[in-house]
């Protein structure tokens, strides 16, 4: 029967592309029990990589949310010249190669550029340092919060907000008491997506960080560096931690996704 044939083809495709590879790495990591896994992750380099990763991802998510919420309000609630352009520009990072992102930031904020040189002379180092990595991560996550919120804002319309205004609420009160509760789960969805993307970013961070072990090495860079240096156990352990974070965020997005969450 056609139905069963289709099901079989799909299952085989997903088995060899998705399920087997991910399952195999989990098995390889844990085949000698959890001991080696924990050992590999408790070396100073690994711990440092965890720390760098969370610092960079945390800052990126904060900045991205601080930009994303007002930008979404602008797009959904305001008409102004250049609105379509802003709308289009927000999606641009989706189509830019992470390596190009890194190159772009180096060209502007690197020590040999005018802006980067000026900042460096004032003691601010962007490239090969945390700010550059944060910038790169913000770049790749940029659309995620905006795109999560805008549809919900449009769906809810502005009548409730207008009603709040007629009842005497100010701009901030209206936002906090009416708008924010309505977009809460969508905002959570966007933040989780951003966080997952930020924790896992590799290409852009690889370019701007300089990949200095124990200094600017994030977990994804750690995975690659350990693998290249034949420390497969550490590489697998870090990769599996990242995969676990990915699965957790996946489950979280399922719970928060606007259309299912209500």
């Amino acid at each position: 029967m056609v139905k069963h044939a289709l099901r079989l083809v799909v299952l085989a495709y997903l088995l060899f592309l998705l399920i087997l590879p991910v399952g195999l790495i989990a098995w390889r990591t844990f085949k000698d029990g959890p001991g080696p896994f924990l050992d590999a992750l408790s070396t100073p380099s690994a711990l440092h990589a965890f720390q760098v990763t969370f610092v960079v991802a945390g800052w990126a998510v904060v900045l991205n949310t601080a930009f994303g919420v007002p930008a979404a309000l602008l797009l959904a609630r305001h008409r102004f010249p250049g609105r379509r352009l802003l709308n289009a520009l927000i999606d641009v990072p989706l189509a830019v190669s992470p390596v190009v992102v890194g190159l772009a930031l180096i060209l502007v904020y690197g020590a040999f550029s005018p802006a980067g040189g000026w900042l460096e002379s004032h003691g601010v180092q962007i490239i090969f340092s945390t700010p550059g990595m944060v910038l790169a991560t913000v770049f790749v996550c940029l659309p995620l919060v905006v795109r999560a919120i805008v549809p919900v804002l449009e769906e809810m319309g502005d009548e409730q907000e207008q009603a709040a205004r007629t009842l005497g609420a100010g701009g901030w009160q209206t936002f906090r008491r009416i708008t924010l509760p309505a977009i809460r789960s969508a905002l959570g969805y966007g933040i989780v997506l951003s966080l997952a993307r930020a924790l896992g970013e590799y290409g852009a961070v690889a370019v701007v960080s300089g990949r200095v072990v124990d200094e600017t090495q994030t977990l994804t860079l750690f995975v690659e560096e350990r693998f290249e240096n034949f420390d497969v156990q550490a590489s697998y352990a870090a990769a599996l931690s990242l995969a676990a974070l990915a699965v957790v965020s996946l489950l979280a997005t399922r719970l928060l996704r606007p259309e299912d969450g209500k």
Partner: peptide, 17 residues
Amino acid sequence: LPFALPTIVAGLVLLTL
């Protein structure tokens, strides 16, 4: 999962298989 999994991990996972 491919959206959520870091790309370097995706590469490593495929390399293992």
